[in-house]
């Protein structure tokens, strides 16, 4: 019983790139509306009532994006009204709504993605491609907070010694530059010890293994397989649906692939929500038994 965020990072990454990829590479209101709805649903399931501000921001963004297109683009046959001698058309408005849904949906996907994907998980994914880059990134992640603390310490020490003598900005900037220069020296000095500590523990004597706390379990494989099958059906459906907004809104599609593709996408988008719900329900059930 694992919640979605505990699945193997590679599986999670594949999922997010699939759902976002499908909408990004197709102009299709069916997909973009499903994507938006699914993204909001997952975000709400994961965050509950927290981060309401983000909803508000993205809603505003949605409105702005949807309204911007008909003001700029005047293609389309159905004129709704004329503004400053420019026709505002229904087609352009719907096109705007579609692209807004696509964009806002993708933003929702990515905010869920960054919430789930901690630095550690990203490193694991990089490690799968290049162990060396992964190690360098890990060292960088170690170094940044260390540099920041040292910078604060040096600046405090200098302040208490009266480095910034007058209350003037130029003097302050000069002081900060000197601090920065000594921090570079400090970092280089640091690097020698770190390098010693690495060679002392046998860095560079042969092929490294990459250790991580993540495993591929049966559930991961099932998820990945289902994900790939659904993605295949989606792309097949998507290729058989041609949607155009201008000059008229037209949909030329074969019925069965279109229905199959859309339902596959709905299922794909809902996968994490299904997992989360299952976990919650199971917990409730277990708790009531206890």
């Amino acid at each position: 019983m694992r919640s979605f965020s505990e699945y193997n990072p590679i599986v999670i990454a594949v999922f997010f790139f699939s759902v976002a990829g499908v909408v990004m590479f197709s102009v299709n209101p069916a997909f973009s509306s499903v994507s938006l709805a699914g993204a909001v649903l997952l975000f709400t399931v994961m965050n509950g009532r927290k981060r309401l501000k983000l909803h508000l921001w993205l809603f505003t963004l949605f409105i702005i994006l949807a309204l911007a297109n008909p003001l700029v683009s005047h293609n389309g046959r159905t004129v709704l009204f004329v503004l400053n001698d420019n026709p505002v058309t229904l087609e352009a408005l719907l096109y705007g709504v579609n692209s807004a849904a696509m964009l806002v949906g993708t933003i929702y996907w990515f905010s869920s993605f960054t919430h789930i994907m901690t630095a550690e998980k990203l490193l694991y994914i990089t490690g799968a491609f290049s162990p060396k880059i992964s190690l360098v990134l890990s060292m960088a992640l170690r170094f940044v907070p260390m540099f920041r603390t040292q910078a604060k310490k040096v600046s405090d020490a200098q302040k208490a010694m009266g480095l910034f003598k007058e209350d003037s900005i130029i003097d302050d900037i000069r002081g900060y530059m000197r601090i920065f220069s000594i921090l570079i020296t400090w970092a280089l000095e640091n690097g020698i010890t770190t390098a010693d500590s690495m060679t002392a523990r046998g860095y560079g004597i042969g092929r490294r293994t990459v250790f991580s706390r993540f495993r591929f379990t049966a559930a991961d494989i099932v998820f990945l397989a289902v994900n790939i099958i659904l993605l295949g059906v989606c792309s097949f459906g998507g290729m058989n649906m041609h949607f155009s907004f201008y000059p008229d809104i037209t949909l030329s599609a074969e019925k069965i692939p279109a229905i199959a593709g859309t339902s596959a996408y709905i299922l794909l988008v809902l996968m994490p929500v299904i997992i989360e719900t299952e976990v919650t329900v199971k917990w409730k059930y277990l708790q009531s038994k206890i």
């Binding site: 060292m139 500590s197 042969g206 490294r208 293994t209 706390r213």
Partner: peptide, 23 residues
């Protein structure tokens, strides 16, 4: 300064990774 990586578990594993010990 002798700590190399960002996570405690990774630091523990670092030497063994270098020796190519299996996961």
């Amino acid at each position: 300064q002798q700590i190399v990586t960002d996570k405690v578990w990774h630091e523990l594993a670092f030497g063994l990774e270098n020796l190519g010990v299996p996961q």
